[in-house]
Structures are given as C-alpha cells and as structure tokens.
C-alpha cells in the first residue's frame, strides 16, 4: 500500500496571553500584554497508508485537534511538514479541500433551518459531484444509515443521532480520499454508535477511504482501528497495533461485585490484586490480569461471600495512558519493533 499522509517533525506553538489576577491586573493587561508559548504539538512524525483506519487518541488538550487542523489545512505548522498525497494542505487549500471530508462531532456543516436534502444538493454543486455518483452515494447512505427517513426534515428538528448520520453523509458525498472524524460518536446511544461504526467500516472497504479518527470511546477504537497513535502533551506516546497496546498497557481490569449482604473489607484477603474497596454490598477490585485473572478472584470470593452480580471493566484510554507514564519504556520498544522505528 502506498503512503498517503506523511508527517515529518511537526510542531505547533501557540502564543497565549498571560492574564494577571485581580482588578489592577486586568487594567494592567489592557496596556501591557505578556505572552507565553504553549507547545500544542511537539515534534511528531508518522506516516499513514492509503486505506488505513487510524485511531488518534489522547486525553483532552493532548494536541489531537491541533494535528488534525494542521493536516486539514486550517493551521500552519510552526515547524515541520505535513504532506497529504503529495500536497501541502496549507498551500493548496482549495485543491486539497476537494480530497478531504471532515466531521466534527460538536459542529454541523448542514444548514440549520432547511431540509437535509437541500444541504446535500449544495454540497453536490460545491464538489461538482456527477448526478450518477450522487445518486449512488445517496442509495448507499440510505441503505446503511437510513437517512431517507429524515432527509426532508430541517436539521434543527433532527435528533443528535440523526444529525450525526446526516453530517457523516455530507462529509462523504464527494467521495474524499481522507475522512477526518473528530469524536464522531460523542453523545450517541449504543445502537447509533454501532450503526455509524459499521458505516465507516463499509466506506473504508468499498471506497478505500483513509480514516483518521479521534475519540474518547475505547470501543470505537476497538471496533474500527487496526492501528492507534497515542498522543499526550504534544508527543507521540505510542504508535502501533491496538492489540499490542492492550497487551502491554491494557492489562489492568476493574471488577465490580454485588454481594447479597454488606461486605466488610477486613474479612477479605485476595492475593495479587492492586486495590480493593467495599461500599455496603458493592465490592470494587482492581487488578492486573497478567498477575491474577478474574475467575481466580471470583473463586476465592465465592468461598467467603454470596455474589449476586458482577461486571468486569477493561481499562479505558485514560488508564492506559496513565500506565504509559508509569512505565514508558516498553512503549518505545513495542513501537520500534512493530513499526520499524517510526517514532520521531
């Protein structure tokens, strides 16, 4: 497969005004402004091949959106180059914009007060989509996302799930090479989430659309991405296969148990667990599954208390990142071994 996106030592520094405290400070700031540099993206490099679905994850303020904005041409890097399909987005913005589709979970590009179909028509003219291709796209969208059910309603009357689906279609009408998705499933129910993931996967397979996805939802990543890039404080923490990441860092699990009677902490002794907390009838146990597995814990517990219910939560992105900080070495190694040292 050919390389589509090439990011080389990309860096973005913002100037932020420092505000003084208090009334006097506010007055002072009116006349004399001080600035500090905020490094949003700090020297990152990676390449993405055509047809990949890459999860770009990290906590809030990690630099995800800044990277996406630089790749989509609306921010100029302070240093380094981001190149997409041989084009530098900032320099050839109009030409480049025909090749990308963008969805921001928090914004809409549809016209608020008029039917969805009118927005689509406008986009059809904007990207000069041929009639036949337009029709074919609409059929596909109706098949998978059932947009025909609400295409003649104005956007303000749509539910969040419907609006999100319509926005996704709007971003794909012109069959872009690359689709940037910024938290596409935020605030949606499970059924719609699943529906949207299926759709993204189908578009990726049928049209070979490259997808870059930022999300806080671990199941988005699990269902869609074969590769993840983890970023925090503007630096790449990990770049590689998702399975690998989970093997190394995602081994922590949390088990929540409901007992028949109130449980006392001191009556329980479990070998190998990291943390145990009791609150009435609820017991929360944190453990590393490479040290002790859930069945072993349950077995030990069942001898002591009556269990009415239990749930096991795998670790989420925040936990994985926290673990990366505690033990950063394996990440670099893992990335180096699986991706041939692409970390910058």
């Amino acid at each position: 497969m050919s390389t589509l996106i090439k990011v080389d030592h990309l860096r973005k520094v913002f100037k932020r005004q420092v505000r003084s405290e208090g009334f006097a400070g506010t007055i002072k700031d009116l006349f004399y402004r001080r600035y500090t540099d905020k490094i949003a993206v700090n020297d990152i490099s990676f390449t993405i091949d055509r047809g990949e679905i890459v999860g770009y994850i990290g906590p809030n303020g990690a630099g995800k959106s800044t990277t996406i904005k630089m790749l989509s041409g609306i921010l100029v890097p302070t240093e380094g180059i981001g190149e997409v399909g041989g084009l530098v987005p900032q320099k050839t913005r109009k030409q480049y914009s025909r090749r990308i589709g963008v969805v921001f979970g928090q914004r809409t590009q549809l016209w608020w007060d008029i039917p969805v179909s009118e927005s689509f028509k406008l986009l059809k003219y904007m990207y000069r989509v041929p009639d036949q291709e337009y029709k074919r796209s609409l059929e596909l969208f109706s098949d998978v996302l059932r947009i025909d059910e609400f295409i003649s309603a104005p956007v303000r009357q749509l539910s969040l799930g419907q609006r999100m689906r319509a926005d996704l279609c709007a971003a794909l009408l012109h069959n872009p090479d690359i689709l940037y998705l910024d938290e596409p499933t935020i605030g949606l129910d499970v059924v719609v989430k699943e529906n949207i993931r299926d759709f993204i996967r189908q578009v990726n397979q049928e049209r070979k659309t490259t997808v870059i996805l930022t999300t806080h939802d671990m199941s988005d990543i699990e269902k869609l991405c074969s590769r993840v890039i983890v970023i925090d404080h503007g630096k790449i923490m990990y770049d590689g296969a998702l399975g690998e990441l989970k093997n190394i860092y995602g081994t922590g699990e949390t088990m929540v148990i409901e007992a028949a009677e109130p449980v006392r902490r001191d009556g329980l002794s479990l070998p190998g667990i990291a943390d145990l907390a009791c609150d009435g009838k609820t017991v929360t146990i944190k453990y590393d599954k490479t040290v002790v597995n859930s069945t072993a814990i349950l077995k030990t517990l069942m001898n002591k208390i009556t269990i009415t219910d239990f749930v096991v939560h795998p670790s989420d992105i925040e936990q994985i990142i926290r673990k990366m900080y505690e033990n950063p070495l394996p990440a670099a190694e893992a990335a180096a071994s699986s991706w041939g040292g692409k970390i910058g």
Partner: peptide
C-alpha cells in the same frame, strides 16, 4: 464559534 475553520475546508 470556530465554524470559519469548516468553511476554510470547503472549495
């Protein structure tokens, strides 16, 4: 609102 960014991504 920052929608100007979306605008810039359009030809």
């Amino acid at each position: 609102s920052g929608d100007i960014g979306l605008q810039l991504m359009k030809p």
